[in-house]
Design a protein around this nucleic acid. Structure first.
Lengths: 268, 268
DNA sequence: TGTTGTGAACCATTTCACAGCC
DNA sequence: GGCTGTGAAATGGTTCACAACA
């Protein structure tokens, strides 16, 4: 084992587990709701219910942040909101750019949940000249020629890609070259980025496929292995057989964007 | 909690791990791309690279499905496409309804990745009478009064919720009552559903918050605990102190939908 | 008394490393 | 020789259960 390569050093110093980080926004949302109702304190049990997790997990999660509760009482809502916000880095302003202003990009531009959490849409970028200057969600679309300038001038470090899959990698490369170090990718494609750049991926059709898997299981629940019982099919059969019908060989995948009709962003 | 509750019985019979199920769509996409390029076989190494995972994981994943490869050669692309599609339940038609046709709902309605994988948008539903009959992505919007009828007539078992958070639970209840057993939720709220109903959640702002967390870590990388070193703040300080500035107490959370301006779906 | 914070046990997932087979 | 399939080890995450404490 070459040992040296530690994909990421587990978030330096007092490292918070990835799974915990992923739940902090959930807690934050529940806490903000309590805060608006002027609830002063909350127990791990109540807060866990509101966030949809179990209370032992919540307490363990909070224990990574510090000892912010009071035994016998619970947690101070306002104080926790602040601590979690700070831990997530939401006490500062994060300018983001959205590239690819099709249906999805437009929906993202107008999404209220961004602004309210310290994310500021610094620019909307699209390759279609016809879009340039047109306001979407109150923000004028800029042409992708100016991508580099926009990023460096505004100090943008987070980029959202909502282009068709075919151009997503090129857009990604340009974003990274211009200084972006975190990318939220809606295009159904695997992006490769240099070390030190984070990519998170949201794929709408993957979620549906996972649901379909479970749905199928439910359907076959009573009737046991109702229809496809070729479980232990012999290995030789497997290699020799030609699939009955590859199903939708002329499908999409890899060529269509996340949006059917979104205009493409052309690389420089 | 009366002990007995086994959230879900780990997918009956020869159970495929959840983590594996979540990756099958990834493999499927990569394989479909290869299939379109008429590549006949692929090694675990190549396919893993295309899907963005490591090859040991991929082989382990496939081993849960069966022995579909050939040692010394690799996997037959067409055959694997078929097997994974079947496992995911994509060889059958899944009618879905989308409730809440704001920006996001419209984007989802037009999303190419659904139709190409066996998902058929059976209906678009919105509570705004002004929307009724208006075609979105070629499909006329129907009024939410007819929700129950649409679901039962079309045999819909998968519902997508893209309404504001405030009405998501009510919409969810109606969907479930009408027979939907899988829900993809875009509203930033925790849905409660009876046993036997699956919910998956996509939250756009959560992903950004996770990125912000890592981004913040990067920024403070050189300068050690640059700015917020109150790690071991005394417990008494914690309970006594009032947070310096709760930041955005007048924010959103819980009241705004996933779309800034999406019309609300009113429950019947 | 009621609730947090946390070791310890448990479980799921990933990775290693190599036998088995083409 | 090359690549799959898989036990076994390692890692990471969750849950239990209870001591500490306001």
């Amino acid at each position: 084992m070459a040992t040296g390569r530690t994909h990421r050093p587990a978030t330096r110093s007092r490292g918070i587990p990835e799974a915990t980080v992923a739940r902090l926004p959930l807690y934050l949302r529940a806490l903000t709701a309590l805060s608006e109702r002027s609830v002063p304190t909350v127990s791990s049990e109540e807060l866990a219910a509101a966030a949809g997790v179990n209370s032992a997990k919540l307490r363990k999660d909070f224990s990574y942040l510090g000892s912010y509760g009071t035994r016998g009482v619970g947690y101070d809502v306002e104080y926790l909101v602040y601590q979690i916000s700070r831990e997530l880095g939401l006490t500062q302003d994060w300018p983001v750019v959205i590239v690819g202003i099709g249906n999805l990009g437009a929906a993202l531009a107008g999404y209220g949940g961004f602004a309210s959490r310290g994310f500021r849409v610094a620019a909307l970028i699209d390759a279609d000249p016809a879009m340039t200057g047109k306001p979407v969600a109150g923000i004028p679309v800029q042409h992708s020629d100016d991508l580099e300038k926009i990023i460096s001038e505004d100090g943008v470090s987070i980029g959202v890609i909502a282009t068709p899959a075919g151009v997503a990698q090129q857009v990604c490369d340009r974003l990274v070259a211009a200084g972006v170090t975190s990318i939220l990718n809606f295009a159904p494609t695997v992006l490769s980025v240099p070390d030190g750049v984070d990519v998170r991926k949201v794929d709408l059709s993957i979620e549906l496929q996972i649901l379909a898997f479970h749905e199928q299981r439910k359907a076959g629940e009573e009737t046991s292995t109702e229809e496809g019982p070729d479980t232990g099919a012999e290995p030789e059969a497997a290699t020799a057989v030609v699939p009955p019908a590859p199903r939708g060989a002329a499908g999409d995948t890899g060529h269509k964007g996340p949006d059917g009709d979104v205009p493409a962003v052309m690389p420089a």
